[in-house]
Design a protein around this nucleic acid. Structure first.
Lengths: 418, 418
DNA sequence: AGTGTTCGTCGGATGGGACAACAAACTAGG
DNA sequence: CCTAGTTTGTTGTCCCATCCGACGAACACT
């Protein structure tokens, strides 16, 4: 991720190596300086110097001494200090959520606030979100944590550069300067706020800490009210020129008889979105179609019926699964990912979808053996987008550790000695 | 493109800055050392040192002195030396071709050898290709050029790492170790040979030197026997995990009545490939459907009929154009490119396609104003893949200028003085 | 207790870039 | 013609980051 068109001086070099040591600790766990040197190819003396600087920044600290590690002097392990954190926030149709992750990837705090976002409108929803973020930040500060960055996920088309939401049909928002609006609502000096599509953030989360952690080529497909997607290719998120990439919901491969929420006929979303599933498995007066009932509960009921072998339910799921496989096949042909991760309700009903879906998939993928692609169900659940957001904030630290500089004050001395 | 997981020492730093100076000269033309310093942000003294090293490598040389450039001492311009070259080769259905491009991007040599590749088979075709490559290399050497690298484009699924072709249905090849086979056939020590899908190379060529040169987000779609595609996102080529990415021809969005060459029904290729066009605009006994006639000639005839306003022809082209727009809309929704480049016969008949295609496109793209995407017809014609191959070979030099080291002997002295 | 091994640090060497000063080469103007 | 002013490119010096060799420290094993 090093900028190829910037001049490289010693500062650049130092930053690169600082980042490399920090990432080594993240990816392979606590270890001695000698071991880091062996891992990275850097000189032992250099590693000592780098670790000292990272320690001064509050990013790493000395851990245990390696006892019983065979012959020779035991190593003094270095580990990532969990003080610095990233904050991920999410606005969805019926809730806002905030999640704080420390540099070690551990969850510090997670708060989900149910809200009727479309009814509440932009202003009040952002007020609520700002309160939730400020509360999480205060809470983190009280336990000695620092927030190094904030990323907000929104279910719509986002231009990341200025942090502007262009259009989010599911919550009815249009042209909202999310980043600026939040900065204005948050007290005190605020670190940079990034804004990103929620499915993109979920894809990043799956790639970084899901069941397939570390996968550099991954496509995330989530089924909720709409159908969203995020693509990670060769380790980087695909955004497109203006950040409009990954709009997979409106591929014209669905049944032309069904009208999509976007107004067009034959969108994929109209064949595999939540509405399509409910249409297939239930009648109008069936309680599972009642939007006032919690989605989790309704899905549990459908899962129950499927498990009992109910014909209508199974046929409906199979139909949706086949349509799902058709679209996923396109994604596999285009991106040749290592793994496809299914999220949202696809994950919840995954076991019943998979047979029909994989049958269709195998029919449509050109590459032999699906191009080495496997299908997986998301295990991150509703926290995926938030986790991805926190991850993005942390990634900035892993790319340029020195960026956390000054802001980080040493933990308040409990005793009070000068 | 700098490896983020390798230790950075001074050598790394030097390489980075050497590359930056060389790219500055490529992108902005000959200029003085002082100007390079201003462009890159490097110090004047550093630039002098870097230029001296590049000159010693034979990559740049002193050019004219800037006369009449206003007040002050005129600058001694530095320009890219065209001695070092990249070689691109292409295997297609009815020809093999070789193109040599010098470091300034100028064409040194282009040879196209008509061959009936499917009938000739793997061995003999590779023999012919090796002869063509060796001849081009000898020819280049005779005029004082050095080949720094070779890239071969193949119309099929390629695994780039070992340089192996997995499957190329249009020429009937399967599991061919292209790189190794060529090395064995070429005399003398051979620089690394890369192998890549031909549409991917064309996409790179369009992005690097087509009408939209410099575009970092670009999708190339070519219509020939099959329909191929190459995607460049954020400046890098999408390959996928195993290099199977970009298979756009078999998206299931075509008329289910038509069978594709792959055996499936409803592939996009079956609706917009060359066979589909001919089916729409001509009867079985029409000369334009005669495969023994050169494709260029047949396309010219179709273009003539369209220009005269022939109803059958225009309706046929419109039908294909609409189908083309449908598929392209998917690509725009997924990749949000800055430009879509149409190649192959799409480019040849472009003016007649565009209206129907753009109408369908606008109907199907979700992002406002097509997400800022424009449609363009390729101007590189049949040389696109070769150009892309040569470009890839040159790109290695622009990434690590020092890599051309030792091999480059100073041009033979014509006089013969010791 | 002695030996061998590994860890972490110290001092010096190497090398690359930044900075300031300077000579060179040109224009403009008297 | 000559001088002042400007820009270029080189030189010498300094700074800084990494590398290398050596050394003390800490441990296991005999």
């Amino acid at each position: 991720m090093t900028d190829t068109s910037a001049p490289a001086d010693q500062v650049f070099l130092r930053r690169h190596n600082l980042a490399m040591v920090l990432r080594d600790l993240r990816d392979h766990g606590p270890r001695s300086r000698a071991r880091i040197a062996a891992d990275t190819g850097l000189n032992k003396a250099t590693v000592s110097s780098l670790v000292a600087e990272l320690a001064e920044l509050g990013l790493v600290r000395d851990g245990d001494v390696e006892r019983g590690g065979g012959v020779g002097r035991p190593g003094q392990t270095v580990e990532i200090d969990g003080r610095v954190c990233g904050l991920g926030a999410e606005v969805n149709v019926d809730y806002v959520a905030v999640l704080v992750l420390d540099l070690r990837g551990e969850e510090v705090r997670y708060v989900r606030t149910p809200l009727d976002v479309p009814r509440l409108g932009v202003e009040k929803t952002l007020d609520e979100l700002a309160v939730a973020i400020a509360a999480a930040a205060d809470d983190a500060a009280a336990t000695g944590h620092d927030i190094a960055g904030i990323t907000v996920g929104i279910p719509g088309m986002v231009e990341t550069a200025p942090g502007v939401l262009r259009h989010a049909p599911n919550i009815g928002w249009r042209e909202v300067r999310i980043a600026d609006e939040l900065v204005a609502r948050l007290p005190g000096p605020v670190t940079a706020i990034r804004v990103e599509n929620d499915a993109n953030l979920s894809a990043l989360a799956e790639s970084a800490m899901g069941a397939s952690a570390g996968t550099a080529d991954l496509v995330y497909v989530t089924g909720e009210t709409g159908v969203g997607g995020g693509v990670i290719s060769d380790g980087v998120l695909l955004r497109g020129t203006e950040g409009y990439g990954g709009e997979i919901g409106h591929m014209p491969i669905g049944d032309p008889a069904h009208r999509c929420g976007c107004g067009k006929l034959g969108c994929w979303e109209a064949s595999v979105g939540l509405a399509a599933l409910l249409r297939e498995v239930a009648d109008k007066d069936d309680p599972v179609t009642d939007p006032s009932v919690d989605l989790e509960v309704r899905l549990a009921e459908i899962r129950r019926r499927a498990a009992l072998g109910d014909g209508r339910t199974l046929r409906g799921i199979e139909a949706v699964g086949t349509a799902l496989g058709l679209g996923v096949a396109i994604l596999v042909n285009l991106f040749n990912p290592r793994v496809i991760v299914l999220g949202g309700y696809f994950a919840a009903l995954g076991e019943f979808f998979l047979p029909a879906m994989e049958t269709e998939l195998d029919k449509r993928v050109v590459a032999p053996a699906r191009g080495g692609c496997r299908i997986e169900l998301s295990a991150l659940g509703f926290t995926a987008a938030c986790r991805g957001g926190a991850h993005v904030a942390l990634e900035a630290v892993f790319t340029d550790p020195a960026s956390v500089a000054v802001a980080t004050v040493p933990t308040p001395l409990p005793g009070g000695m000068a």
